[in-house]
């Protein structure tokens, strides 16, 4: 396997506040990595740094052995980094199809005619095909989340960043979403996924990193991380002396 992304001592400061403190990790092509951590741990910031929505204070981000630290978000998208946002950002005045078409046309520099099949395929995969001509502003939350995913997929990313894509969904909806994510993985797309719904996350990812206060706490297989004392202390706020280890 080849290394797809390398985050090297990434630091992000907002004034005196250090929200990302020398985080380093790597991800191989085809791998799926989960990111866990309490609210405010700096997970979304980390994703924003990788996607280029925020500039690094110091450190480097290598994608396909290329330093992309100085590249803007749109450039990183065309290089192959696709992302979804925790709060969906649909283009409310455009139809579902136009949302996806835009992603295909800009993310992959394709003409409208060359984008038809990509659009159709991602709309079919995310179950949005029947809604293709609906104005995105009229979609309910689940469909907005699906659209967020469909748009990111239409840019045909080699690395897909997912920010709490299952948040706010019912169990049944999460189940449907997991099926979609497994299909995306099967197509060879590398995934970095932030999620609070642990059982959903562990059913998809190969490896997990846990962060708190902008610092990487632990890295390992889902089992190792979930059962580690460091993680349980921080994430569940459980005093491990009193908690019987299962």
């Amino acid at each position: 396997m080849t290394m797809l992304l390398k985050v090297d001592k990434a630091v992000k400061e907002f004034g005196a506040l250090r929200v990302c403190n020398e985080i380093s990790f790597e991800i191989q092509a085809g791998e799926a990595l989960g990111i866990l951590g309490p609210n405010g741990a700096g997970k979304t910031t980390l994703l924003n740094l990788i996607a280029g929505d925020l500039p690094l204070t110091s450190g480097r981000i290598l994608f396909n052995d290329q330093d992309v630290s100085g590249q803007p978000a749109n450039k990183r998208c065309t290089m192959g980094i696709g992302r979804t946002s925790q709060i969906p950002r649909p283009f409310t005045g455009m139809t579902v199809y136009e949302n996806v078409l835009l992603a295909a046309q800009y993310g992959r520099r394709k003409s409208e005619a060359d984008s038809y099949h990509v659009c159709r395929d991602v709309l079919a995969l995310t179950g949005l095909l029947p809604l293709w001509n609906t104005v995105a502003g009229n979609l309910r939350l689940l469909d907005r989340k699906r659209l967020e995913l469909a748009r990111a997929l239409a840019t045909q990313p080699s690395l897909l960043l997912l920010d709490e894509i299952a948040g706010g969904l019912t169990d049944h909806e999460v189940h449907d979403l997991l099926a979609i994510l497994r299909q995306i993985r099967a197509q060879g797309v590398t995934i970095i996924w932030i999620e609070h719904i642990v059982h959903a996350l562990v059913s998809v990812v190969d490896r997990i990193i846990a962060i708190d206060f902008g610092t990487l706490l632990i890295e390992g297989t889902p089992d190792e991380v979930i059962h580690s004392e460091t993680f349980r202390q921080v994430y569940f706020g459980i005093d491990t002396d009193l908690e019987p280890v299962t």
Binding site: A51, A73, S85, F91, G93, M94, L102, Y106, G107, A154
Partner: peptide, 17 residues
Amino acid sequence: LGLTAIRDSESGAASLG
């Protein structure tokens, strides 16, 4: 298409290239 996207969400448009 890009301009309409920028109107609706500039950051969203940037992350799609």
